[in-house]
Structure formats: structure tokens, C-alpha cells
Computed example of a mutant assay.
Amino acid sequence: MTMRLSPAVAGLLLLAGVVAAAAQDVVIDPEQETVIKEYVKKQPLASVKIPGVELNVGSTLPDTVELHEVPNAKYRYVVVDNRTVVVDPGTRKIVKVIE
């Protein structure tokens, strides 16, 4: 017996999968966040301005923004508008904004 889905049901299932994938936020564990905060304090950077980019988790930084490495950390950082922004170097997406 073959099961067929109506286009509406198929669309809803597809949409549910997209929403579930988008809901998977990157979580930086407290230890990793502490390592990043301490490193940033020891290695201060000049704050930069990035016109047209909102500092929200999931926003993508342009290739022109230099990302700085934190030893033994998966993520990179940059200081934007005096806020430390933690970035996934592979996607250049913001994963955390530290006040």
C-alpha cells in the first residue's frame, strides 16, 4: 500500500523541519564564555563600527570584518560598538553578544 501526502500536508512537514532547524541555537557553555571574556580583557581590541549589521545572534558579519582568535576556543571574536561579539568562523554568524 502506497501512502500519498497532500501538497498541504507535505508543505507543513517541510515547514516544521525548517523551523526545527532554525531553533537550534548555538549554546556556549559557561566555561567557554568565561575563557572568552578573560581573554578579551587581557587582549583588548579597538571597537569597530559595522554599518547596516544588527548585533543579533544569527546575523552574519561581512568578510571585511577581521575576526580574532581565542586560544583553545572554537569561536572567534570582534568588538563592535564596545560589545564583544562571538562569531562562528566558518559561517561568520554571530553566536553570542557579550555586554
Rank of each mutant, 00 (worst) to 15 (best):
I36M: 09
E54V: 04
V48C: 02
I28W: 01
I50R: 08
D81T: 05
T91F: 05
S47V: 00
V78T: 13
T64K: 15
Q43V: 15
P71C: 06
A23H: 13
E66Y: 03
V70R: 03
K74L: 06
S59C: 09
K41F: 08
T34F: 14
G58E: 01
R92L: 04
V80G: 02
V80Y: 10
D81V: 01
D29Q: 04
K41Y: 07
E99N: 10
R83W: 00
A21R: 09
Q43T: 14
L5H: 13
L14R: 13
P44T: 02
L13E: 11
D29S: 04
V80S: 02
V86W: 09
H68E: 06
L55K: 05
V19N: 03
V53T: 11
T2G: 07
V19Y: 03
L55Y: 04
K37N: 10
L12P: 02
L15V: 13
V95S: 07
V53E: 02
I50Y: 08
M3P: 01
V80Q: 06
Q32R: 15
L45P: 02
V85W: 05
S59Y: 10
G11I: 05
L15Y: 12
V97Q: 06
V65C: 04
A46H: 10
V79L: 02
I98T: 06
P89Y: 02
I36C: 09
T2C: 07
E38S: 11
K96H: 13
V87M: 05
T91E: 02
T60W: 02
E66D: 13
M3F: 15
N82Q: 12
K74Y: 07
N56L: 15
V80W: 09
D29L: 00
K49Y: 03
E38V: 14
Q32L: 13
A10C: 03
A16N: 08
K41W: 04
D63I: 13
V48E: 06
D29P: 00
V57E: 11
L5K: 12
A46K: 11
A21I: 07
A23F: 11
T91S: 14
V79R: 07
V19A: 14
L12R: 13
K74W: 02
P89K: 00
D88V: 06
D29M: 01
Y75P: 00
A46W: 08
V85N: 05
T34A: 13
R92A: 03
D25Y: 09
T91W: 04
E99A: 10
S59M: 12
N56G: 02
